[in-house]
Structures are given as structure tokens and as C-alpha cells.
């Protein structure tokens, strides 16, 4: 009894180890769900890569056609010329403003890749009925918005070949590796600064920005 157990335990351990190794390495070991068919994948696979436009579908659109679609689908929020209504995003302007006190981040001033514009309009716009526009209309809108920003000429035709070639103004100003931590502080405990130098530079008191319309917090306003 004792001896057989002694033999059996290592054997079981080896078998278990082999099973778990197989489980980790072999796709489909659980076997749950269904393998996605090419047709199913085609129906779901909507993404477009910004840098090279991989995933852009067939189709095309002109600036003029884009102006018509824009007037109907976009102008109410983004303004007739992309100037933005209310707090909805501006689509044009801000070129050269990125170092200013109040920079304007738009397709023209900030976006690094043109295919991203096609991808975003296609997946998320118009806001109340996203992903309902045809590929041609999304191409046309992309052409029109690029044209509003003077990034393409008026006779530009947007398609899967032309969009990745559009040179965006801010293309080379992104750093895609995180440089943080960018502050290094030593946790001083005593007399860390001169008490006489401690000065309030900014206070929310009296600024009247904290919402007053959301309940009991109202009465927390400065006395």
C-alpha cells in the first residue's frame, strides 16, 4: 500500500502537469463557442488602421458630394464650415495654436492620420445614428473635412489608396512611448519648505464654477 502510493503520486503529478501544459498550449482546448466563419468576420471587421489605412474598404467620395452629406448629417452640431456649434467639436482651425495658451485641437491642427478620420466617422457618426452611412458617403465626408482644412485640393477623391497618402500637419509631433515618470520627488518629512513661502496661488472659492443644480451640494458654496 505504502509503496504503491509512493509510485502513484509522482505519476499523477506528471499526468496533471502534462494535461495543464496541453491546456495552455493548445487552442480550442476548452472548445466553447463557435469558430467564427469568414462571412461572420467580414460582417464585424470594421476597423481601419490610422497609419497605413489597413482595413479601408472599396469605394470613393468627392469633396462636393461630401459637402452635401455634411450639410445633411453633420452641420447641425459641427457648424456649416466645421466651426462647431456650442461645445460640439470644431473640425477646422487651430493650425499653429498648439503652443498657445488656448490651443485648438482639430483635424487640421492636431490629427496625425487621415484614415483615422474615415474610421471614426464610419464607426461613431452621426452621433444619433452611428455606423449607418455608406462607405462612399464616409469617403465623401472625409474628403470634405480634409478639404475644409486645406489638407487636400478641391478635386481630391478619397479612397483606400489616396487617404493613407494625405500628409497631416501634426503627423510627426507625437511621441508614442510614454516618458513618465517625468517627475522625481523625494518625500521630505520636516521643514520641507519655508513656512513663510507657503502661498495660495489659486482658489476655487468664489469662482462660481461648481454646479449648483445637483442637490444638497448647493449649500456647500463659499460662505
Amino acid at each position: 500500500m505504502y509503496s504503491s502510493r509512493k509510485i502513484c503520486l509522482p505519476l499523477v503529478a506528471i499526468l496533471l502537469a502534462a494535461a495543464s501544459l496541453a491546456g495552455a498550449a493548445e487552442p480550442g482546448s476548452f472548445g466553447y463557442g463557435r469558430v467564427a466563419s469568414p462571412a461572420q468576420i467580414a460582417g464585424w471587421d470594421i476597423d481601419v488602421r490610422g497609419e497605413d489605412g489597413a482595413g479601408l474598404p472599396p469605394g470613393k467620395g468627392t469633396v462636393d458630394r461630401g459637402a452635401d452629406v455634411y450639410a445633411e448629417q453633420c452641420a447641425a452640431c459641427h457648424g456649416t464650415f466645421g466651426e462647431g456649434e456650442g461645445r460640439f467639436p470644431k473640425l477646422v482651425g487651430g493650425v499653429g495654436s498648439l503652443r498657445d495658451e488656448r490651443p485648438e485641437l482639430t483635424v487640421g491642427s492636431y490629427w496625425p492620420f487621415a484614415p483615422t478620420l474615415w474610421d471614426y466617422i464610419n464607426r461613431a457618426m452621426p452621433m444619433a445614428a452611428p455606423h449607418t452611412l455608406s462607405a462612399d458617403d464616409v469617403y465623401a465626408l472625409t474628403a470634405y473635412i480634409l478639404s475644409l482644412n486645406d489638407l487636400v485640393p478641391h478635386d481630391f477623391v478619397a479612397d483606400r489608396n489616396s487617404l493613407p497618402k494625405v500628409k497631416m500637419r501634426n503627423r510627426d509631433n507625437f511621441i508614442w512611448t510614454d516618458p513618465r515618470p517625468d517627475t522625481i520627488a523625494k518625500p521630505c518629512m520636516n521643514a520641507c519648505v519655508n513656512a513663510a513661502d507657503v502661498r495660495i496661488s489659486s482658489t476655487a472659492e468664489g469662482r462660481d464654477l461648481t454646479p449648483r443644480t445637483t442637490g444638497p451640494l448647493d449649500t456647500m458654496q463659499p460662505k
Binding site: 476597423d47 481601419v48 488602421r49 490610422g50 497609419e51 497605413d52 498648439l98 503652443r99 490651443p103 485641437l105 483635424v107 492636431y110 490629427w111 496625425p112 492620420f113 483615422t116 478620420l117 474610421d119 471614426y120 461613431a124 501634426n170 509631433n173 507625437f174 511621441i175 508614442w176 512611448t177 510614454d178 516618458p179 513618465r180 515618470p181
Partner: peptide, 30 residues
């Protein structure tokens, strides 16, 4: 094999620095 550079990681959720450059893919919460 490459990142997508979607709108939510280019136009938004990137950090504009005083010199006009921007940091992208700053995922970590410090």
C-alpha cells in the same frame, strides 16, 4: 502587428506638451 491609432488614442487621450509635441499611449495611471 501594429497599433490602430484610433480617434480615441490620437485626437483624444493624448497629452499636449508646452513645446507643441504630444504624448500618445500614456496608459498608466500614476
Amino acid at each position: 502587428d501594429k497599433p490602430w491609432h484610433s480617434r480615441e488614442e490620437t485626437s483624444k487621450y493624448t497629452d499636449l506638451m508646452p513645446d507643441g509635441t504630444s504624448r500618445g499611449f500614456t496608459w498608466l495611471i500614476d
